[in-house]
Design a protein around this nucleic acid. Structure first.
Lengths: 180, 180
DNA sequence: CTATATTTTCAGTATTTATTGAAAATATGA
DNA sequence: TCATATTTTCAATAAATACTGAAAATATAG
């Protein structure tokens, strides 16, 4: 009767596999497994889904679905859609892979790299003038780290602001030249 | 008497702060907090340290210290040093920031990106010939993801094989041109 | 305003992950 | 060989994190 209750076909199986893999990968990179799964689900859904649909598809509780959907909205990877004449809220994911990458790069920079970098710089300043070879060695190491992170941040910044996926093949070519 | 028991000076304070920050950052990126702290400790130690010294500095148990040291050795970020005439084993960290980055990039690629990519490719193949717009849309999305990840992997590969930190400023310049 | 649909919160619980500490295994030197 | 130093393992425990479900809050329609 309903197209939802038909026997699990190849598409459903592939999708479930994808959701599971994406969740596992998220875990390894410090992202809540369920949040990554919700993301995978929405990424491969043509239409926007309601909280109830997410709950049903992933077999998770309302609170869990709600929390992770809001967090994805917080990241900017998912947006809330309200349809006129309907009370329910729908959620739909950014689908463009390059834009997704930019959003993730920007957010991780803002949330994790920037604070660490500021702390490193403080560390560096506080040990800059200290006497003794020990202190000097420590200061050198921290300075090297902080300069490296600073450069990495600058690159992330520019990549994620470029907003053109054409840049990837370009970078590829560039490293093709400079590698062994 | 011992130089270890002197009142905590500025250097010690800065170092503790660094260890704590590095640990927190590790946590956000899916790395065991303690492992990141051990790494931070060794990175800023001129001399190689024993398990007992790591235990004392970080106030952790022998099992914990041992386990995390071995894992760092497994990553290739730390190496085991044996001094002739001594029974104890010492551990020392790679200090060069660029080499550290290459090791981490290479390992994360191998451990997390490659398996995910293989799974994505399987997903893509299994839905390639399926009929229906739903299946076609799913296949397109998975294909886009898998191509993107594949390119990212290729870049990581080449960056981490280039073994020359001079490449960072180069990349910076490159994006300077292409951004806004 | 009332009834109903929907979202939001959060205390309690479950699950996962990390840590301890002591016993077992191994290596070293006498 | 034995005694001792050191490393390794791992079951038990602790800590951190994620999840549930139901109650409270909020929004909407009549």
């Amino acid at each position: 009767m309903s197209e939802k209750t038909e026997v699990p076909d190849q598409l459903t199986a592939a999708r479930d596999e994808f959701i599971s893999q994406w969740g596992a990968m998220g875990g390894a990179w410090g992202i809540n497994r369920t949040m990554a799964q919700v993301h995978a689900l929405l990424m491969t859904s043509e239409k926007a889904l309601t909280t109830d649909e997410v709950m049903a598809e992933l077999k998770i509780s309302r609170g869990n679905a709600h929390q992770n959907l809001r967090e994805l909205v917080g990241w900017g990877l998912v947006r809330n859609v309200i349809r006129k004449g309907e009370r329910k809220e729908y959620y739909e994911s950014e689908k463009d892979v390059w834009r997704m990458f930019c959003i993730i790069a920007r957010e991780r920079k803002r949330r994790e790299v920037e604070p660490a970098l500021r702390a490193l710089q403080t560390c560096e300043e506080q040990t800059r003038g200290l006497r003794g070879e020990k202190a000097a060695a420590f200061n050198r190491q921290i300075k090297a780290l902080s300069e490296f992170l600073g450069q990495a941040e600058a690159i992330m910044d520019r990549v994620s602001k470029s907003e053109q996926s054409a840049i990837m093949p370009l970078v590829l070519k560039m490293f093709a030249k400079s590698s062994k």
